[in-house]
Design a protein around this nucleic acid. Sequence first.
DNA 1: AAGAACGCATGACAACTGTCACGGGCGAGT
DNA 2: ACTCGCCCGTGACAGTTGTCATGCGTTCTT
Lengths: 205, 205
Amino acid sequence: MSDRAIRLLLADDQALVRGALSALLGLEPDLEVVAEVGAGDQVVPAALEHHPDVALLDVEMPGMDGIAATAALRASVPDVRVLIVTTFGRPGYLRRAMQAGASGFVVKDTPAAQLADAVRRVHAGLRVVDPALATDSLVAGESPLTARETEVLQAARDGSSVAAIAAKLFLSEGTVRNHLSSAIGKTGATNRAEAVLTADGNGWL
Amino acid sequence: MSDRAIRLLLADDQALVRGALSALLGLEPDLEVVAEVGAGDQVVPAALEHHPDVALLDVEMPGMDGIAATAALRASVPDVRVLIVTTFGRPGYLRRAMQAGASGFVVKDTPAAQLADAVRRVHAGLRVVDPALATDSLVAGESPLTARETEVLQAARDGSSVAAIAAKLFLSEGTVRNHLSSAIGKTGATNRAEAVLTADGNGWL
DNA sequence: AAGAACGCATGACAACTGTCACGGGCGAGT
DNA sequence: ACTCGCCCGTGACAGTTGTCATGCGTTCTT
């Protein structure tokens, strides 16, 4: 399996980072970047065209986020292994990424020298997970929020009032307040803003 | 001035991005990365030790942010030119960076091929500014917030209540409410949360 | 010296927010 | 069939928040 270079697909919305990662990985003789895309919904088409062995995906991307892209990729091109490379080590991201079929999860403040190794391990069929993040993920656990609570909190992220949220989701104001109150309780917050912050910080939104 | 490679200092808190940028710029024969640091307060010491020609600084960094690092660097090692390379194109960042003495300002979603050119231009004494961002900066203008309003809004970022903010800043609750109300008015928000978002989005915090 | 802008504070009012108790409907699992 | 959890809603209550008028002291500019 090793007389041919490992073919890589890079997906990151920041062109500079994408290009830089490409340069970094291109330095390794056994790695070859065959495609670069800047949006989640370009991942599958690019994979179909260039047949990469490993896809490095960011989570935060326009169009389709990296988690959804992972799922889509696994569904349509199962041979491709996915390594998530992201800025934010939110526990929920890790969990959801693995559930979506990712083989690895690396945060962007790991040393540059380790990235190539992570790629090789993923290509070899191993799983690569940041150890510190893995324990965080166990502690934080799955999102305790129900679908509606999540939706309401998402709508509250931009500082909307209860009335605005209710209008957007076609709910009564009282219902919105109930969902918010419940979400506040579950997140251990005292506040809507706090609840949004902790839920977001855990990758629950 | 051009028979010697341009010496670069890289500062970014994400090791992976730092290393990747280093690889990218290292591909250019006339550029040489002589130092890499991961925190703002390491910029000046590293510059004193390695005598770079150009420093590439991120804005978001632990210890000391890129803007403060720019000012410190210009003060202690005036020969070094500064190119800010950042994720967020907040108008206020641009303005403050230039006022702090930066020679250039590049967002991380500019094409990778342009970065080396930007470095060369900055080294040649030119100013490099993202055009779209420059106009935004003119529109958004300087922060309309007073020192106290800014401080109060910063304290409100984590969803603190009025009482908590008042306690933290040793103010009466009424005063905090007044400052908040004024900040809300100036930002065109209807809300504390909204005010925080727009102020933050403009780089006023 | 006067005015303007800022910071701090108080008190009062309306609006919004968070909580609670309660009820009904729906689907999943026992 | 029954329970459980989730969703939706109402109404009421206390607490918080945003606004406004007003006052005083300080600093900076004209």
